[in-house]
Design a protein around this nucleic acid. Structure first.
Lengths: 341, 341
DNA sequence: CTGAAAGCGCTTACAG
DNA sequence: CTGAAAGCGCTTACAG
């Protein structure tokens, strides 16, 4: 690469064509990754010269002409939610490998956030959208259907659209099963808000495991949250105030588990001695808390790849077998859970 | 908006022109935000029709023609570092307000990560780059200088380029001053790796405060980390193993503080009763830890705005007075620090 | 203020 | 396989 692209005159396809003594059409074809890679001497020469000149295709010109931009939009509630940052990084890496760019927009949990995000991304000409925000009642999904932007859901299913998800029911089941296996029977649950489908499915898995075991679910020990650490702490304080004892707690996300542990600490309850705690998502921090958190690991890389594949199929108007790809979470046992004594 | 843009035929400037009975040149000018907003009847009509037709400018066509894309690239080490996610969200919001798009690339702390990130962003035709990765010795800065991409540094200064930063020396000073004021004199320090300029400046502030107070700095109580939670825990374990007592600890980031608290807990030291701890960055989680963390709040929004302004000036070839804008951090006292008894 | 025309850097039928 | 030509949707001197 003789010359890094900058503000000066860019190296265009015409420069390469002239230097190689061929037409720009030919250069365009030789450098087109979608076409079979020609090993003819001419092709090799063009590639060499393009390299020497530091030529890179102008994505704007190419996008304008092709009607596609090789850009995918990703919508998440917030990037400061580490699980979402992990997921976006996964999509970003997978996109990179496929020569695409992932751009992210956040909804900030605002009512109109999703719509604004979609509009912004569409304006930027993304080829499609991976939607990972979490409002069940959000009309954005039907709105996305009406608009003609190709999209897939990720980390949640809704309205029958294509989706790449983790098996949240199984995850909820496995987390609860772990606690039951350790001898716990009175288990508190910290779930998300009504509209969050993934939290509800994890709750379903919780119920399934409890029923299978014949363990009763105390409604007082089921706390709804808005996914904030604070609301989790509040919910646990209320449980404690109600005087209903519990020896274990399953939280629908690691953040909620952190809030729970914070409240438990403040009330003089030790983890895991007095209460065992299981989280969900296995965010990087969880392994490094004062009491390392037992958590459900979600295969974000796999889900990201699936989402991207499904989306590409949609963009290319290919129909995909299935339409929903489900990845399996796994339990990572750590210090926050122990056998009841 | 009659018709959401999608895959069907897009509404182009020509559609608007025809519907309004003017030329596309005229439409282009009327809809050009850079030009003074005309209130002539004609202009109003065109704007109304554009709206009715759901016209949005094709950023690719516009970008191709104008030679700029209204996109800024942001480079951070990782998005899973919450402080970086906060910062990117801040840039994203500020960009939005200015009608720009912010796209992010991560270095993953890889030696060649920064270069790869720059190359990727340049390929995507960003108008400029906000560089917030943290390797002091990274040759990428001089490399950026050679390439002709406009860029500014953020959260760190290096090699004299334009930069939007927090006052890390002051922050380190204030954090340490807080501990000194509470009566602590043997204070441990958790700093970053050699190459991280911001950590070093915070360390300078620490030294300044200690010297001012006439408090000695025990080299054994200065622990270098690689910014991971684990390495912080390890460093604290080593201090404890060495048998050098300390009643307070200042960590160059909240993550390091979390690692420290984790190690302290494992060694039976209570925070704040046995050891007071101060972090830096005030990430959202810090307020919600079992022991809420005293931390230095960094005005990320302000730094993001500054970075964007500096960058725009560079892009427009305007020279800016100064070239470095410094924002002031502030101490947020919480439960992790208390007066020595 | 307005319009016709050129051109940004590509890709892609079309014809050879 | 190759090249000349048209055109993607804009913006912008240029001339009126």
């Amino acid at each position: 690469m003789e010359q890094e692209s900058g503000r000066g005159r860019r190296v265009t396809i015409l420069d390469v064509a002239r230097a190689a003594g061929v037409s720009k059409s030919t250069v365009s074809r030789i450098l087109d990754d979608r076409l079979p890679h020609s090993r003819s001497p001419n092709a090799q020469k063009v590639r060499r010269i393009a390299d020497e000149l530091g030529y890179t295709r102008d994505v704007f010109a190419s996008g304008l002409r092709q009607g596609r931009t090789n850009t995918v939009g990703v919508i998440v509630p917030r990037l400061t939610d580490t699980a979402m940052a992990v997921f976006f990084e996964a999509i970003s890496h997978a996109s990179d490998r496929r020569g695409k760019l992932a751009v992210v927009a956040t909804t900030d949990h605002q009512p109109d956030g999703a719509r604004r995000a979609v509009r912004n991304l569409v304006k930027r000409r993304v080829d499609g959208i991976i939607f990972a925000a979490d409002r069940r009642d959000d009309p954005v999904v039907s709105w996305l259907d009406e608009s003609e932007v190709p999209y897939v859901l990720a980390l949640r299913r809704e309205g029958g659209g294509d989706a790449a998800v983790g098996d949240d029911v199984l995850g909820g089941y496995l987390a609860t099963r772990h606690l039951l296996d350790l001898g716990h029977t009175t288990i508190a649950l910290l779930t998300g808000p009504e509209f969050a489908s993934n939290a509800r499915l994890r709750q379903d898995g919780f119920r399934e495991a409890m029923e299978e075991q014949g363990a009763a679910i105390d409604p007082v020990l089921v706390g709804a949250t808005d996914f904030t650490v604070d609301s989790a702490a509040d919910a646990v304080h209320r449980m404690l105030d109600a005087g209903h004892e519990f020896s274990a707690l399953f939280a629908a996300t690691d953040n909620l588990a952190i809030g729970a542990m914070s409240a438990l600490a403040r009330r003089g309850k030790r983890v895991p001695d007095d209460v065992s705690v299981v989280g969900y998502n296995d965010i990087p921090l969880s392994a490094h808390l004062p009491v390392p958190l037992t958590s459900m690991r979600v295969p974000f890389e796999e889900i990201a790849s699936n989402a991207l594949e499904l989306l590409e199929a949609k963009i290319d108007h290919r129909s995909v077998t299935g339409g929903v790809r489900t990845s399996t979470p796994s339990l990572i046992p750590r210090g926050s859970t122990r056998r009841v004594i």
